[in-house]
Design a protein around this nucleic acid. Structure first.
Lengths: 367, 367
DNA sequence: GCCTTGTGCGGGAACGTTCCCGCATCAATA
DNA sequence: TATTGATGCGGGAACGTTCCCGCACAAGGC
């Protein structure tokens, strides 16, 4: 243990921050020279440059961000707003996907010299117009999102993790929804599943419509009936209820064979993996014995269930990184061509979707 | 479906933003008058004030934040940094407590006219010194946190959700840890539990040491042996292992009676409620039949387990609200006396901690 | 020795806002 | 009618930085 640091003496002198002119006076140079020395610009002799830097360092000089911004015309601030959840504007962070996307956005931005400002979901720019943000990240916009329209009308560049096509000023990174669905379904098929059922949110986001379409195409290609249940809304409750519907076999089916219990479950809606697993058990399924389970989720609890749950990650970190790169390129060099990057997903195979012979754990439902 | 909005014509004219002088010229008034009209200051006739406002609105005037900040000397920016998780600087948002604290901090700040900037956990101000933040919220600082020391040395006001006593420039809101523990233990005792066991993280934060002390005092007062297990670290893995230790009865105990299986479990470390519930089941406990379960957690999944899990909420929204209130008071009026508010916790009683006769659900362990 | 070219540094304007004053105008009072 | 005070509005400085330009001086070519 070190000593407790002494309390700082002065209660609070008005704290005259050291400015450029103060450094200039101290160093016997002009503010122009100091500025050029610190920014690495201008024509200066090495000695003068070093002296300026040394003096600034010694005096603890820190440039005034507001003045710099005023002069430069850019605030180096990026807003972050979520399209959905407009009725509960701040709950989005409780979703692991958004939590990680938010964190990764902030991290990448900061590395590129931009600060990220958190905004209430679904809010319009009039509510925070006085922040004068350089750009805004709109996470998961709905179709024809009013938030996006509002920002573009105000001529604020927009970046999104979903397609926003045909809008000048909008840039995006897209998730390979089709590839993700095919990958997950191929995986459970390889593991022996023949009657997979899919749970998808009843949402108009492009991701989910693509998931829907890819699923139908896959089923057609493999001669498998389309078994899908749409979850009524976001949140664990509706998704769990959809899972229950999917597993109790109330699905419309063409033949008797199709009414057989499903042997694989792909949950595309974000829900807590332990809760999904519990629901399967309550309905009498052993995982992975009777049912192979894959969840589209970023939730770390998937690793800690027994058996651990296979997840399909949308890789929010990669999305944020690619997105901020393009956004910064647009802001700083006016590259207007960089929209539309496609980020592949990642399947983390765990015991819940591996055929029992190979599985480490097999949970049995209560008898 | 509405028509797709037409693409905006101009690719991007240099976008000469409308300034105060532009509004002034248009309205035939001076910039001073416009400024006063919009800010509600000065002595102006109602007609002129209205005309100024109308013109500004019509021209789409939006004040330049940088200029305003430069003039005012304050950036109206508040940083948000987490003390813990320094080795994984961005994971904190995946914890429901931090997710909600972050969101509530941003929401309250924005209402008071301040924007919240997300910062990497454990980072020092030298890494983002050029943001010139008015203040920084340090969530869950460790004892003698270097982040706090660093900020105070740079004379940046600090607000925290944990005590930071004896540091001028530091303000905090505290959680009533003792009351929380007593409340939870009283609750399970009322429900008939006589051998409660507590899981606490092995951490030096004031909250956890207070929990520890309050637990000991409560046990002494009720003549109950102190049963406590310390979790090795944050995250679900260590906490689940601690729960397993707590329930398998490897605790040091003074008498044979004390070695009896516990009949209540209070998990103070933040872990996923479904995972904790699963762990109890794997060890052969029925909840709430054999074991009353209370988790200190903000996780919404607690409502969706069967049985739903009783949680003790630290009420991050209340913490953030009280904290930002005092911080804004300090920044704007220099109130230096407002440190140390105490926020009570809230016990959300659900089936997992209610004596079976009254319980709606009782989960049975696999036989 | 004069003109050109290049180097090293400083003066001063500009970014857009807010706020301190000062100058009118006008009503109320002596 | 002159004096005061209040009211309504505008001029101009200031916030701290960057950047354009200009000036002084040195070196090189004829």
């Amino acid at each position: 243990m070190t000593d407790v640091p002494p309390h700082r003496g002065q209660p609070s002198p008005p704290l005259p921050r050291v400015r450029l002119v103060d450094v200039a006076r101290e160093a016997g140079l002009s503010k122009t020279t100091i500025s050029a020395a610190l920014n690495g610009t201008g024509r200066l002799s090495p000695e003068v440059r070093e002296k300026a830097r040394e003096t600034a360092r010694r005096m603890g000089y820190r440039p005034n961000a507001a003045a710099r911004r005023l002069r430069a015309g850019r605030a180096r601030l990026i807003g972050y707003v979520v399209g959905e959840f407009a009725d509960a504007p701040w709950n989005f962070l409780e979703s692991p996907y958004f939590a990680r996307l938010t964190a990764a956005t902030a991290a990448t931005s900061l590395r590129r010299g931009y600060a990220v400002v958190l905004l209430p979901a679904g809010s319009l720019q009039s509510e925070w117009a006085d922040l004068s943000l350089d750009a805004v990240v709109v996470a998961d916009p709905v179709a024809d999102d009013p938030v996006v329209e509002d920002l573009l009308a105000a001529r604020i560049p927009v970046f999104s993790d979903r397609s926003v096509e045909g809008r000048p000023g909008a840039y995006w990174v897209d998730v390979d929804a089709g590839g993700a669905v095919r990958g997950a379904l191929d995986h459970v098929r390889e593991q022996g599943a023949r009657r997979p059922v899919v749970v998808v949110p009843d949402s108009t986001t492009r991701f989910h419509t693509e998931v829907f379409a890819a699923h139908e195409a896959w089923c057609a290609a493999h001669g498998v009936p389309v078994r899908v249940v749409r979850a009524g809304g976001p949140g664990n409750g509706p998704v769990i209820r959809a899972v229950e519907t999917a597993l109790t076999g109330d699905l419309a089916a063409d033949s008797a064979a199709d009414r057989a219990r499903p042997d694989a479950l792909l949950v595309v809606a974000e829900a807590s993996p332990p809760l999904v697993l519990d629901a399967t058990r309550r309905l009498g399924y052993g995982v992975p014995g009777d049912l192979l389970l894959v969840c589209v989720s970023e939730d770390v609890t998937a690793e800690h269930t027994q058996p651990p749950v296979t997840t399909l990650s949308l890789r929010p970190e990669a999305i944020a990184e690619a997105g901020i790169e393009t956004l910064v390129a647009v802001l700083e060099h006016g590259d207007r061509e960089a929209a539309g990057v496609l980020v592949p997903t990642r399947l983390d195979v765990r015991a819940s979707s591996v055929r029992p012979a190979q599985a480490e754990y097999t949970s049995r439902p209560p008898t």
